[in-house]
Design a protein around this nucleic acid. Structure first.
Lengths: 218, 218
DNA sequence: AGGGCGATCATCCAAATGGTTGATTCGGGT
DNA sequence: ACCCGAATCAACCATTTGGATGATCGCCCT
């Protein structure tokens, strides 16, 4: 059987070099192309497809400095826009936040590994993913379990709206005026937000909401 | 003249492999040791020192998942605890926020490069740093320049530190305990921060500081 | 028809935060 | 020797925020 043909996607030349070197040590896999962001990845995919040399696995970072991010790219790949059938996508990234994992899984990723994983773990993940199986880093799997056991209550639309204003530094009074409601109502919403996020003041709420990507953080 | 002897410090095996591969392509440099965090780095340094084979340059990430972080490690290296004279430290990291840069420079780093830099830029930085010169990434240098041209009153190191804790949602009391200072002092710092940033409460301060990339917006 | 939930508002009280003034210490620079 | 800014702390008071409780209204769902 021929080698597993891999497309590397990462905006850091250093990381690409590392993966290339690491994968070169694994028998049975070959890096056939590289890209520095999602746009370039899609181009590479379709190019290789028309050449009749489709890739078997996309190994991609989620955070890309510029260009299309990993989640969007995963969605597009899975939509089949760049060759049929779409190859499995293995996410290899730095962060293991709930929001990141969730987004990746929802976008159709076949696996989620962390960059600080030992080479052997990465090798296993690459092989499983290429074989069509799911490969999750132990840390990630554990986190998902915790998430299922501890479902954090969803914020209502109004609450998210409050949270967004809150993150701009507005006072209760300012938010009340902006939303045409009373300060009392603002306070009620805030109390609900705090209890849902498990915090007890506004700055902590912003910190948690930002970290969970409930609101934008920059 | 003999090769520049380098110690690699990064908690990601992938990144270490990448740097190793990249540096192998540069003539005149040799990676003599690797470490996954600050503690291990100090051990390696003193070990090589007693062997009479001191390193000429430490190439280190700032963010280390576990163990001693890069800033602390830089301080210790510069304090000469791990061999005399202390080698220059070149920071190679992912983020270019003021807080990170400030901390690294204050800790005595000789340079600050971003991981998404092209190999050639990294090569130049390695050579300059090993030669005892300062090497800043263009993005970083530009940021510092803009800071100078835009005389928005500079925050002191302590103030930035406060701001970082603030952004995690800590109360005045919590910050006071964490920094071993009184709440009165915390409040004084906050007042200074507010006036320098042109705001009048903590959440607004976080919003502005994040926008200006004084701190990381997660 | 009734139950649940989101959104709205009020009141009362406690705790945290913000604003002001003033003071001390320490280090760097003229 | 002198000045200045950073960092430290204190005391005071006004304002804001947080927490508890309770209430009304409208909507969706069964």
């Amino acid at each position: 059987m021929s080698d597993i043909r891999i497309l590397l996607v990462d905006d850091h030349p250093v990381v690409r070099a590392g993966l290339r070197a690491m994968l070169a040590d694994f028998p049975g896999v070959t890096v056939v192309a590289e890209a520095s962001d999602g746009d370039a990845a899609l181009v590479e995919l379709s190019k290789l497809n028309t050449l009749g040399e489709p890739v078997d696995l996309v190994l991609m970072d989620l955070q890309m400095g510029s260009g299309m991010d990993g989640v969007t790219a995963t969605e597009k790949i899975k939509a089949g826009e760049a060759g049929n059938p779409p190859p499995p996508v293995l996410i290899l990234t730095t962060y293991d936040t709930d929001a990141d994992i969730l987004a990746a899984v929802e976008a159709g990723a076949s696996g989620y590994m962390l960059k600080d994983a030992p080479p052997e773990q990465i090798r296993q993940a690459v092989l499983s993913a290429a074989a069509g199986q799911t490969a999750l880093a132990p840390e990630v799997a554990a986190r998902l379990m915790g998430r299922i056991r501890n479902p954090s209550p969803a914020l209502s639309g109004r609450e998210v709206q409050l949270l967004e204003l809150l993150a701009t530094g507005m006072s209760n009074r300012a938010m009340a005026k902006q939303l045409f409601i009373s300060e009392a109502t603002v306070k009620t919403h805030l109390v609900h937000i705090y209890s849902k996020l498990g915090v007890d003041n506004r700055t902590a709420a912003i910190a948690v909401a930002t970290q969970r990507r409930i609101i934008r953080g920059h």
